[in-house]
């Protein structure tokens, strides 16, 4: 594991990313957009309450808005950073040179993913001062922000795994990027649409609408389930609760909008993390197999047939080994 984390590909990726002017520019644009959204919201709230100050709901609402917007930014940025990591190497004609070193395919794939996700996390961490503005208004605990950041991490890893997978499957980076964005779009919008469709069918048949599992794959659902109940009221929590049922708006007092729905045991963000973990493992596993040119499923082959070298050659081989060892 240490070898995977401290491997040269990771070091090279960090060095390459941070060496050019592009990185500071991306961070500046990212923070600029987040800051503009925060300021915009602040100004819209400031107008009608000049003399009475801000209501207690302003801080939490700003927090929800920022959290959702940052999730969308993470979802938007991740494919751009990951969908070309393998296909880019292939296009640059450097993949063969990398694969024929002692680095394992697992190490290459994980390093590429970790390097990209690390950069995305850098963006998220850099946004902390913007989130700090929420404290100015109060109403949000640090642990809640921490929970939201874990959702970002899982989302970045999941969409990152999708990007790495597509860049392994498709030879051209452009195709890989487009397909990755389509898949991410499906996670964000498609899962919700399918869930609504399934819920509406369920309601028409007269039964109580249960939460389709596909809804839990939506990172927005996971994010909303981490908000304390009073947060985001008036934005779209109730709508989400109606669509997905379950304890989406955790802590909503009975009668305040659907908390009477039966609990499903785990929280939606927990289901989301399980789903994400499965997706990450499967996609990375396939990616690793795809870039392993020789020795795929080698442990199976080894069991099936143990091949031996002709005796005449073995004599020369021993000499060669000794020579090489010298």
């Amino acid at each position: 594991m240490r070898g995977i984390i401290l491997n040269p590909v990771l070091g090279k990726e960090f060095r390459s990313r941070m060496r050019t002017w592009k990185s500071p520019l991306v961070i500046s644009i990212y923070l600029g957009v987040l800051s503009l959204i925060t300021l915009g919201y602040y100004w819209t709230r400031q107008g009608p309450i000049t003399y009475t100050g801000f209501g207690p709901e302003v801080g939490p609402q700003m927090y929800v808005m920022l959290a959702v917007f940052q999730l969308l930014l993470v979802s938007f940025v991740t494919p751009a950073f990951t969908a070309g990591v393998i296909s880019g190497e292939r296009e640059r004609q450097t993949l063969d040179l990398l694969v024929c070193t002692r680095l394992s395919a697992t190490s290459i794939v994980l390093s590429k993913l970790l390097a990209s996700v690390s950069y995305i996390l850098l963006l998220v961490v850099a946004s902390l001062p913007v989130f700090g503005a929420v404290y100015f208004f109060g109403g949000v605990r640090l642990s809640e922000i921490g929970q939201v950041f874990v959702v970002y991490l899982m989302t970045a890893l999941t969409f990152g795994a999708v990007g790495v997978f597509c860049s392994t499957v498709f030879k051209r980076t452009q195709v890989s990027v487009v397909i990755t964005y389509i898949i991410v779009f499906f996670f964000l919008i498609g899962t919700a649409a399918v869930a609504v469709f399934m819920a509406s069918i369920s309601m028409r048949s007269g039964s109580y609408p249960s939460t389709p599992f596909i809804a839990y794959l939506n990172p927005v659902v996971a994010l909303f389930s981490t908000f304390p109940g009073q947060l985001g009221q008036g934005l779209f929590l109730r709508e989400f609760q109606f669509i997905f049922g379950g304890p989406v708006p955790v802590g909503v007092p009975p009668g305040s909008g659907g908390a009477a729905l039966p609990s499903v045991g785990l929280q939606p963000w927990q289901y989301n993390f399980i789903g994400d973990a499965v997706i990450i493992v499967v996609l990375l596993g396939i990616s690793i197999q795809l870039i392993t040119p020789v020795g795929r499923f080698s442990w199976v082959k080894r069991i099936r047939h143990r091949k031996r070298m002709p005796v005449t050659v073995e004599i020369g081989t021993a000499d060669a080994r000794e020579r090489h060892a010298d």
Partner: peptide, 28 residues
């Protein structure tokens, strides 16, 4: 050098240096 190419690719990579006909470099 006695190592089967498909059987032990890791060891073979240590024993061989490969230069392809077309190759790229990391320009950064």
């Amino acid at each position: 050098a006695g190592e089967e190419v498909t059987g032990n690719p890791g060891r073979v990579r240590q024993l061989t240096g490969y230069m392809p006909d077309f190759f790229g470099v990391y320009d950064d």
